[in-house]
Simulated scan of single mutants.
Amino acid sequence: MAAQRGRDLLLKVDAGGTGSFTTVAGLRARRLAFNAAAVDVTDTDSAGRWRELLAGAGVRRASLSGSGLFKDQASDAAVRQLFFDGVIRPWQVVVPDFGTIEGPFQLTGLEYAGNHDGEVTYEMALESAGALSFTGA
């Protein structure tokens, strides 16, 4: 597979919970991270005192983040309202030539910044709030 352009990685939100996804506009950077907590089951009988982990146990989670410029009033307003309402909504991450990850996320951080000689920027952070699905490209 050839290298992919970072700008083709899309972050979309279903702000109204209606099944209609809108691309969050103006993003310059996006990130998706998956994590799983390990469950340590090591005991005195563990071979060579090596740590043992319990397969399939622990909590899995995904984190989404993005930063960029405000360019689209509708998606900007939707993101801001989701934060202030504290609601959980479906989000999608579209990874080119890979697939789409979709599931419920809560917007847990929203930051605005701006220099006197530059544009207003924002950063947002989201945490998964349920099971995620993957659909291959």
Rank of each mutant, 00 (worst) to 15 (best):
Q106D: 04
S63P: 02
E127Y: 05
E123K: 09
S65T: 07
A77S: 14
L110F: 08
G68H: 12
A78P: 03
F98S: 11
G109I: 02
E102S: 15
T108W: 00
G114D: 06
D85A: 13
V87K: 08
D85N: 12
F105M: 03
S67R: 12
V95N: 04
G86H: 02
D72I: 00
G109L: 01
I88Y: 03
V95G: 05
Q106W: 07
W91M: 06
T100D: 11
A131R: 13
A131Q: 15
S63T: 10
V59K: 13
G56V: 15
R61A: 09
Y122A: 01
R61I: 09
A125W: 01
L53D: 06
D72E: 13
L82C: 11
S75D: 05
L82M: 11
S63V: 12
V87Q: 13
P104G: 06
R80M: 08
E102Y: 05
L132C: 10
P104V: 15
I88K: 13
G58S: 11
L82I: 09
G56I: 15
H116R: 04
G58A: 07
K71E: 11
L69F: 15
G56C: 14
G103F: 12
W91Y: 14
D85F: 05
T108K: 02
Y112F: 12
S63F: 07
W91R: 02
Y122V: 00
P90H: 05
A55W: 12
L126S: 01
E119M: 11
R60V: 14
E52H: 00
A113D: 06
L126D: 01
A74F: 07
V95E: 11
D97F: 10
S128N: 12
G99L: 10
A77D: 14
T100F: 05
E123F: 03
L126N: 00
R89T: 04
W50A: 15
A74R: 08
T108S: 06
G109K: 05
D85S: 15
W50E: 12
G58W: 11
Q81F: 03
T108E: 01
E127P: 03
G68C: 07
S75A: 15
V87R: 03
A74Q: 08
T121H: 05
A55F: 15
P96S: 07
S128I: 07
Q106R: 14
V94S: 03
Q73C: 03
Q73F: 08
P96I: 02
A78I: 00
S63Y: 05
S67M: 08
L69D: 10
R51M: 05
E102T: 15
R49V: 09
E123R: 03
F84I: 12
R61S: 14
V94Y: 00
S65V: 08
A57S: 14
P96M: 10
L64H: 02
F105G: 00
R60I: 09
F83A: 03
L69Q: 14
V120I: 06
Q106G: 10
E127S: 13
G86N: 05
F84V: 14
D85P: 01
P104L: 14
T100Y: 02
L126R: 01
I88A: 06
G99P: 13
S65Y: 09
V120A: 06
R49W: 08
L69M: 13
Y112R: 08
N115E: 06
W50H: 15
G58Y: 13
Q92C: 07
G114K: 10
Y112P: 01
F70R: 01
G114V: 11
E127I: 08
A129L: 13
D117Y: 06
G86I: 01
G56A: 13
R89Q: 04
A129F: 15
A125I: 02
